[in-house]
């Protein structure tokens, strides 16, 4: 059976780069709030945002030299946990071109890499799109 994009109530299209402002934090807050209201959510990342779920990040941020005992989750782990908590209603997609261009071709389990030519299928599969940030 051919896979088709599951329908969603909202698509969050994230283009902005991590580590520049609180865009990623806002996107995660909004995603969680939408899920809490039983919405179906898909996230599509482009540009540097594709690195948020890069497999190369591993589960943890680099160690804090001031406190070796503390573990801090990577963005990939934070997002992976959110996906695991809402497997039916949250779907995370990464633009394959941007991921390759930003040296993040390998993504964490649960994230689907998509060719940019399929982007409009995702838009047609949602009731509305909120585009966050610019490249």
């Amino acid at each position: 059976m051919v896979w088709t994009v599951p329908h969603s109530d909202v698509m969050l299209k994230i283009l902005g780069a991590p580590h520049q402002d609180d865009l990623v934090t806002s996107a995660l807050r909004l995603t969680r709030a939408l899920l809490d209201q039983d919405a179906r959510v898909q996230v599509w990342t482009c540009g540097d945002a594709t690195r948020l779920t890069s497999a190369a990040l591993g589960a943890d941020k680099p160690l804090d030299p001031a406190d070796h005992r503390a573990r801090h989750p990577s963005t990939a782990a934070v997002i992976g946990d959110l996906l695991a908590a809402h497997p039916e209603r949250l779907h995370w997609y990464v633009c394959r071109f941007c991921a390759a261009d930003r040296a993040a071709p390998e993504q964490i389990p649960g994230v689907r890499t998509r060719p940019p030519s399929r982007f409009w299928e995702h838009v047609r599969a949602t009731d509305k799109v909120l585009a966050l940030g610019v490249c």
């Binding site: 109530d9 909202v10 807050r29 909004l30 969680r32 709030a33 939408l34 809490d36 209201q37 919405a39 009731d127 509305k128 909120l130 585009a131 966050l132 940030g133």
Partner: peptide
Amino acid sequence: VDMDDVAARLLRPGLRAVW
């Protein structure tokens, strides 16, 4: 407001959202 308020508004049918 908090994000719950934002999510509720965003889910309104026919609403356009621009960031």
